[in-house]
């Protein structure tokens, strides 16, 4: 029995070029999935590396800021068995900054509105085929308000909204489609380049998560092994926040 096997599954992954995105792409491909990757720009060499496995993975660019563009994209890619909605932005301005207002909208548009449109567009076909998985990427910031004193408000708010979206979607998408989330703590990617490692001293496992450590629960939630997991958010934070 191979409960985490993704063989035969077509998996959509947004934000595929970032740290967690690339780790997720590599893991899901290695577990047998055929991937449709999207991001603003393609990570160089990722696709070639993935295609070495022999499966026909594709990269298709998508502007996640537009409802029409997301609809067109989803029409173009055909049916998928799982969607990992990982694309997100981490804006860092303070609310005293005039430009914060624009960044607030950006955080909400990319981190909340875009996954809602992906889910809205993909769900009917998944439901009518009788199966599907959606995994949303939350954050420890949804629970804590942010790990650091300077953690940005708009980012934390957007991830709080996303956790709510997991629960909202879960009961409407089931039983055919299971919707869940993964909430990473500080993860070693470009996104936390501004994080202060000394703040980690106080957490039980005092280090950043490696991107693969976030990819593993994502793959689990896409897999047959998670057949009764619905509306859950898996915390992967080394004990930095326990709820």
């Amino acid at each position: 029995m191979r409960p985490y096997d993704l063989t035969g599954m077509r998996v959509l992954l947004t934000g595929a070029s970032g740290g967690i995105g690339q780790a997720t792409a590599r893991l899901c491909a290695a577990l047998g999935a055929e991937l449709i990757l999207t991001d603003r720009v393609m990570a160089p060499e990722l696709l070639d590396e993935l295609r070495a496995s022999g499966r026909d993975h594709r990269f298709i660019a998508c502007d996640v800021g537009s409802r029409r563009e997301i609809e067109r994209f989803c029409d173009a890619i055909g049916s998928v068995d799982a969607a990992v909605l990982n694309a997100g932005v981490f804006p860092t301005r303070s609310w005293d900054d005039e430009a914060w207002d624009e960044e607030f909208d950006l955080a909400m548009n990319v981190n909340v509105r875009a996954p809602a449109h992906f889910a809205r567009t993909l769900l009917p076909a998944m439901k009518s085929r009788g199966r599907g998985r959606i995994v949303l990427l939350g954050s420890i910031a949804a629970s804590t308000g942010g790990t650091y004193a300077h953690s940005p408000l708009h980012y934390a708010c957007s991830k709080g909204a996303l956790h709510t979206m997991v629960r909202w979607l879960a009961r409407r998408a089931a039983p055919e489609v299971l919707v869940n989330g993964v909430a990473p703590g500080s993860t070693d990617t470009a996104m936390v380049a501004t994080a202060d490692p000394s703040a980690l001293k106080s957490i039980p496992v005092p280090r950043f998560a490696r991107p693969e450590e976030i990819a593993w629960p994502i793959a689990f939630l896409c897999s047959p092994g998670a057949s009764f997991v619905c509306g859950s958010i898996l915390d992967v934070n080394g004990g930095a926040y326990m709820r």
């Binding site: 703590g185 039980p204 496992v205 998560a209 490696r210 450590e213 629960p217 009764f228 997991v229 619905c230 509306g231 859950s232 898996l234 915390d235 992967v236 934070n237 080394g238 004990g239 326990m242 709820r243």
Partner: peptide, 10 residues
Amino acid sequence: FVNGSVLTVD
């Protein structure tokens, strides 16, 4: 890296 978490399967 999962520590102190509750994984709900319900």
